[in-house]
């Protein structure tokens, strides 16, 4: 939960730093509601990327939500359609992880859906509020503070503790290397291509031997990624 506040503040501050109108910060957070992709969009736009590339980058980053959605399918199975629609909107890295681990304690579908709403709703509300606060505070932060450092720091804090398999290590290493090799590509295309190449090659790395944990990758939502859903 504190992660959502800090991440939200950071995104809001970033919006104001790159000179976009401040209302876009809470707008993005309440519609996209996925922090990493929102930051990636801002970075792409800052580099003058065409809209299509910015959107594609965001959707590639958010493709991981499809995994959570698949994990939620059996948990949400008995819910009415409008509940599924709302809970899908509120799905974040954190709420998917908590729902996957705790939902079995609520076998009754009515109680279960309220439980999941209670888990997901506050995250999103805090994310939006934090973003708005960041957008308001952003202009008062002096340039000398180099607030831009929050971008790599945030992602290090989210990604490194969550890496628990060799394929994940490979995906990260390959993606980072490709991004740097392709640094002269325009429009932040190096980020999009780096991520795709990392995913493609690492898919062939065998799953065995997980450093620092025995979690099987992909079996359930990785607990704890992304302080504010991204």
């Amino acid at each position: 939960m504190p992660g959502a506040v800090v991440f939200g503040l950071a995104f809001g501050a970033l919006i104001s730093e790159v000179g976009l109108p401040l209302w876009l910060a809470p707008y993005a957070s309440s519609t996209v509601t996925a922090g990493a992709s929102q930051i990636a969009i801002v970075e792409a736009l800052r580099q003058g990327a065409p809209a299509l590339i910015a959107i594609a980058t965001a959707l590639v980053i958010n493709a991981r939500l499809a995994l959570y959605s698949a994990a939620m399918a059996p948990i949400f199975a008995a819910f009415p359609r409008r509940w599924k629609a709302v809970l899908a909107y509120l799905m974040t890295d954190q709420s998917a992880a908590v729902s996957a681990f705790e939902a079995h304690r609520w076998p009754d579908p009515v109680r279960r859906r309220w439980f999941i709403l209670g888990v997901s709703g506050p995250f999103v509300a805090i994310w939006i509020a934090g973003t708005a606060a960041g957008a308001i505070l952003g202009p008062v932060i002096p340039d000398a503070w180099q607030i831009g450092f929050i971008v790599p720091l945030m992602f290090i804090a989210v990604m490194v503790p969550a890496i628990r398999s060799w394929p994940a290590v490979a995906a990260a290493g390959i993606a980072a290397t490709v991004v740097l090799i392709l640094k002269d590509l325009p429009y932040g295309l190096n980020v999009l291509i780096g991520a795709l190449v990392g995913i493609a090659i690492a898919s062939f790395v065998p799953d065995r031997a997980a450093p620092g944990g025995s979690a099987e990758p992909g079996r359930s939502p990785e607990p704890g990624p992304e302080g504010g859903q991204s």
């Binding site: 990493a36 970075e43 790599p152 992602f155 993606a175 980072a176 991004v179 980020v191």
Partner: peptide, 19 residues
């Protein structure tokens, strides 16, 4: 499933390296 599980580390590492 495996490819989707690699999206987060790959995408985040790409953003970290770039920024």
């Amino acid at each position: 499933r495996k490819a989707l599980s690699l999206v987060a580390p790959a995408a985040m590492a790409a953003i970290i390296a770039n920024s």
